[in-house]
Design a protein around this nucleic acid. Structure first.
Length: 860
RNA sequence: GCGAGAGUGGUGAAAUUGGUAGACACGCUAGACUUAGGAUCUAGUGCCUUCGGGUUUAAGGGUUCGAGUCCCUUCUCUCGCACCA
């Protein structure tokens, strides 16, 4: 035998053959369609479970370690549920329309479909290497025509319900790239907003856009959050985004003018304190009411405001600016004439685009009034007996008692809001009003790589939806993926495609805008139910069988947009009677981000991971300078060289190690740093399990102590898996393994149950071990073992003996020993006697199975 | 500023109704074994200690026989929103 041969043999004995095992079982699952699922009517409703992962965008970079985290969590959960007798729907697919493929196409001329397909192949292969139990027969990709046919169909339903309309909306436009950019493609720099790609300047430009009336659903989107089992933080973010507020609309007459200004206010109770008004610079009334003397100033202010981005306008730190229109309005409650100003801190898109300014009780109005020397009066007292004439040093925006407000004096803020709103309604001067921050959804993109919007515009400019029978409206081949240069989509240059005939024979032009990436992901969970149906987007039977989604796991980055858009579409589908629930996702869990380490210099800058050296535990230096750097937690990034590639990990340690480590790192919902050293620990654990498996198998009953450990393990793993507390379940399996390792033989009764506990977590290894014990088919549907409650509790346990709350001794007692007996045993304890001798007992607390505490006062 | 959440060893983290703080793992120390490995096994490992004990869950206070856990105050960090009238 050669030396190398001997080494190879040694290492084969030491390292468990995870490569062979993992390839073998992945092939087995695939050829046997182990995880294919059908709608079996005999399965009761509560045993049908739909577990959904947020599907990935198949980027060229491939999978990163963040993807497998959520996917492993749901996979463990699904495998566990199957063993618990559930019918589990667990699909995967690809969110495959998107900008990177189009950007790449512009650069290289490669059709986005080609790169997308290649990336999907790569992603699918990477995902499969982790051994997830998806039903791959249900795989979908949003860019495929038989999928987006139904995305288009849903759009037509929205259009028919009058929820889609055209508007001129300011969007980000980049001259250098010749295209419109989405908000997320814009970065803020010290020189202003720039395109993420290339760093070119961008401007806001009004362009024709398709809009969806999500605002019509604002109230329901808000109300229905209540009953969802979602993280509070996500609900809060959605509430905040919808931004409901209740107040009143009040009409002000413009003095010496035949027009009125309507304002929205949440503080009608402060109406007497309104000393001026402010209109948004874009407000249509501005041109009408501006006096000749003020016209130049107002016009130049409007021009300046138009040049500013929303971000500059909304920069809180800047000083207030504005211009006086020369006009006055009449405060309806006291007939006083108040000046009308314009300012960019008033947004045309919110409320009525005009406000009554109450500088005494609003910080922004106060800042503006101080800037321009406008009147500030108090109409709210901070406490009941405050002098109404007491001047304000700053805006008092809290609630209080109404003063200087005529008939309303003495009321509380809340009472006054109600009374004054009623009074306004009676006088015909205003009414209660509700406002939302939520805006309608800009749904069109001037892009190629997205779903074409299935509409045709005739010569008269009238819009015609294309007949549903003609769907899908497919993307035409184009010569160039470059935008038209006019702000129109590349599709605008494809005249053959654009020019079409209407059913009545007249000619028309197709809509050349495409849908945003959100469109496909708005409803994909429905297509998984019935992915090959060419008659409907999904059959009602299948929707009724599975919906709603029981558990939805994904990253927090989709907290607002995707989840809100998706809920909106679902509600529309509910309203037209094609789905059975008002909400799509019952329970939502956000996995935490997987971060990495980086090193920080004393000046706060970061050093890439390969440019430092550890000199002592906890101490690192930058190699080039020799200066000490601190280890910090940072996001994974190419520049810091701290990105972990799942392929490398699987290659070196195996998929089971990867899966287990990501779950063992810490609680699922928490962010945690990747540490390859920790992964090695997990790998050792699996290696140990493999070594135990080599021990001779005994048919004899295992010793009682080991049975106890096993039953505790079954209980804990079961409960923890159900609650998605995977890290503690793994700890318990380690404890069990350590116990089993102490014996020379393997007891079948213990071993088989343990394998089944391990199976959801490390499925490849578990299948192999299961086969080694003589089973001939998969363990995927073996019942999860039951535990004997009697064996999960110890007959004897340790009870703590305390004196004045400090542990002084411990004794072993039989479980359930009574208080009196415990106290007697404690008093017999010599250590305790020593302490008791030092004082007088005032109180004795005895808690069975826990402790005895003597409270004593020291004797003099 | 507003909203949400979190602070526990050198590190990742555990801790049922308030009842032994630090399970499990990494790292470290010592030993065993070994043609030497990210190997295995054994023992130890919060901190201080005069080896009796003292002390310890961001800081301070409170409730309690007893607080990581409940209440109050402060500090720090993360995430989201941000002139929304």
């Amino acid at each position: 035998m050669t030396i190398t041969g001997s080494w190879a043999t040694m290492s084969a004995m030491k390292k468990y053959p995870f490569h062979e095992i993992e390839t073998k079982w992945q092939r087995y699952w695939e050829t046997n369609s182990t995880f294919r699922v059908t709608e079996d009517p005999s399965v009761p409703k509560e045993k049908r479970t739909y577990v959904l992962d947020m599907f990935p965008y198949p980027s060229g970079a491939g999978l990163h370690v963040g993807h497998p985290e959520g996917y492993t969590a749901t996979d463990i959960y699904c495998r566990f549920l199957r063993m618990k007798g559930h019918q589990v729907l667990h699909p995967m697919g690809f969110d495959s329309f998107g900008l990177p493929a189009e950007t790449y196409a512009i650069k290289t001329g490669t059709h986005p479909e080609i790169t997308t397909k290649q990336n999907i192949v790569k992603f699918r292969q990477q995902i499969k290497r982790l051994g997830f139990s998806y039903d791959w027969d249900r795989e979908i990709s949003t860019h495929e025509a038989d999928y987006y046919k139904w995305t288009q169909w849903i759009f037509l339903q929205l259009y028919k319900k009058d929820l889609a309309y055209v508007a001129e909306i300011p969007v980000w436009y980049c001259e250098a790239l010749g295209t419109v950019l989405a908000n997320e493609e814009i970065i803020q720099t010290s020189e202003g907003p720039r395109s993420e790609i290339g760093g070119h300047p961008v401007v806001r430009k009004p362009l024709r856009q398709w809009m969806l009336k999500i605002t019509e659903y604002a109230e329901r989107l808000l109300d229905d959050l209540e009953d969802l089992d979602w993280p509070e933080s996500i609900k809060a973010m959605q509430r905040n985004w919808i931004g409901k507020s209740v107040g009143a609309n009040v009409v002000f007459q413009v003095a010496h003018h035949n027009s009125t200004i309507e304002v929205y206010t949440t503080r009608p109770d402060t109406l007497f304190g309104a000393t001026y008004m402010v209109l948004a610079p874009e407000h249509p009334l501005v041109a009408h009411i501006t006096t000749d003397e003020q016209r130049n100033e107002v016009q130049s202010y409007i021009q300046k405001a138009a040049l500013k981005s929303d971000l500059e306008r909304t920069d809180l730190a800047k000083d207030k600016t504005g211009a006086f229109t020369g006009a006055f309005a009449i405060n309806p409650v006291n007939g006083q004439e108040i000046p009308v100003w314009i300012s960019d801190y008033i947004l045309i898109s919110y409320g009525t685009g005009a406000i009554m300014a109450v500088p005494g009780h609003d910080e922004r109005d106060y800042a503006f009034a101080t800037q321009f020397g406008l009147d500030i009066i108090r109409v709210v007292a901070s406490h009941k007996d405050q002098d109404p004439a007491e001047p304000l040093e700053e805006a008092f925006a809290d609630e209080g008692w109404v003063v200087n407000s005529g008939q309303f004096d003495g009321l509380t803020t809340a009472e006054c809001k109600e009374k004054i709103t009623l009074w306004l309604e009676q006088q015909g001067l205003g009414k209660k009003a509700i406002n939302y921050k939520l805006r309608d959804w800009i749904f069109s993109r001037q892009r190629y790589w997205g779903e074409p919007i299935p509409l045709v515009i005739d010569e008269d400019g009238e819009i015609h939806p294309i007949p549903e029978s003609e769907l899908p409206l497919t993307l035409p081949a184009v010569e160039s993926y470059k935008p038209a240069g006019t702000g129109e989509s590349p599709l605008a240059t494809v005249t053959d495609w654009v020019n079409t005939t209407l059913p009545d024979g007249r000619s028309g032009k197709r809509e050349t805008n495409t849908m945003p990436q959100w469109a496909g992901s708005c409803w994909y969970y429905l297509r998984y139910l019935d992915p090959h149906n060419d008659k409907e987007f999904a059959s009602r039977d299948k929707i009724d069988y599975w919906m709603p989604v029981d558990l939805y796991v994904g990253g927090q980055e989709h907290a607002v947009l995707h989840l809100l858009y998706s809920r909106f579409w679902h509600k529309v589908l509910y309203d037209i009677g094609v789905v059975n629930t008002t909400e799509p996702y019952l329970r939502l869990v956000n996995q935490g981000m997987i971060t990495s380490y980086a090193y920080q210099r004393t000046d706060g800058t970061l050093v890439p991971i390969d440019e430092v050296r550890e000199t002592a535990p906890g101490h690192w230096i930058e190699i080039s300078t020799g200066l000490e750097v601190q280890q910090v937690i940072a996001k994974m990034s190419k520049s810091l060289k701290n990105v972990i590639n799942p392929d490398d990990i699987i290659e070196e340690f195996g998929a089971d190690s990867m899966r287990l480590y990501e779950m063992f790192m810490g609680p699922l919902r928490q962010s945690k740093p990747w540490n390859t050293q920790g992964l090695i620990g997990i790998h050792r654990f699996l290696d140990k399990v493999w070594r135990i498996a080599q021990k001779p198998l005994s048919e004899q009953k295992a010793p009682l102590e080991l049975q106890r450990v096993l039953h505790k393990t079954i209980k804990k793993v079961g409960q923890d898996t159900e609650n998605l507390d995977f890290n503690t379940a793994i700890s318990q399996m380690m404890i069990c393994t350590n116990e089993m390792n102490k014996l020379e033989v393997l007891h079948r009764d213990i071993w088989e149950s343990f394998i089944l506990c391990l199976a959801p977590y490390a499925p490849h290894l578990a299948e192999e071990l299961w086969e080694m014990t003589g089973h001939t088919s998969t363990l995927a549907y073996e019942p999860f073992p039951d535990y004997d409650p009697a064996l999960t509790i110890d007959d004897e346990l340790e009870v703590v003996l305390q004196v004045n709350g400090k542990v002084r001794s411990k004794i072993m007692v039989v479980r359930g020993t009574g208080k009196d007996e415990l106290e007697r045993l404690a008093r017999e304890n010599t250590r305790i006697q020593e302490y008791l001798a030092q004082g007088t007992i005032v109180k004795v607390v005895a808690v069975p199975d826990r402790l005895v505490n003597f409270v004593i006062t020291p004797s003099k």
